[in-house]
């Protein structure tokens, strides 16, 4: 079975936020909810890099481990989804997630967060596929149409890759070979640094 993954190539991402816009438009997420975001490290300094991040659909998902109502499930494609009818908006998944993927429509005092929303890998949710309930709660279901998430599909530099982990690995490996490994080109020239062999 396929194991769906995202991969963002830091050497290619140009921080255009096209993936963020594509996601918002495709899934019509509520105001204040950001399923995907682009983070720039060392902005304006040497070594500046950008990465696009959303739910990484972990194999051993921390959100699912800590959820008090057990609303997460993993599809056959390895996509981590959740059931909004069961979610109580406690925010535990947000504490546990390393990537900051879980989002809440409100952050008012006294913890009325509303139901959690996160990236679905454009695979909808537990409702009937392509029903209007599914769209309003979880956004579009492109995977059911045999398509990949729109953020990766619309990435202008093909920095953001989505798909089966094996295929992604092959693509990235080929890129590394062709670049001659970014460490050698962009990083230290080991001969100059005095290391022989």
């Amino acid at each position: 079975m396929a194991r769906m993954k995202f991969y963002c190539d830091a050497e290619r991402c140009i921080e255009c936020n096209g993936c963020v816009t594509a996601c918002k438009n495709e899934n019509e997420v509520p105001w204040g909810v950001n399923r995907r975001r682009v983070v720039t490290i060392k902005d304006g300094e040497p070594g500046e890099r950008s990465l696009s991040v959303a739910c990484m659909h972990c194999s051993d998902a921390p959100c699912a481990a800590v959820c008090p109502v057990d609303c997460f499930y993993t599809t056959d494609d390895g996509i981590v989804l959740h059931d909004k009818d069961i979610c109580i908006g406690c925010g535990y998944c947000f504490y546990a997630c390393p990537f900051g993927a879980p989002q809440f429509p409100s952050d008012a005092a006294f913890a009325s967060r509303g139901k959690m929303d996160k990236c679905t890998f454009c695979a909808g949710g537990p409702e009937v596929t392509h029903s209007s309930e599914e769209f309003t709660k979880y956004g579009s279901n492109r995977v059911a149409e045999g398509k990949l998430p729109l953020c990766a599909e619309m990435c202008s530099t093909k920095a953001l890759l989505a798909g089966d982990a094996d295929v992604l690995s092959d693509i990235y490996r080929k890129r590394m070979v062709n670049r001659g490994a970014s460490v050698m080109n962009w990083g230290v020239q080991f001969k100059k640094a005095g290391i022989d062999g």
Binding site: T40, D43, G100, D107
Partner: peptide, 9 residues
């Protein structure tokens, strides 16, 4: 890091 998205962390 720097991001356009406003939110916790």
């Amino acid at each position: 890091g720097l991001t356009q998205v406003q939110g916790v962390d």
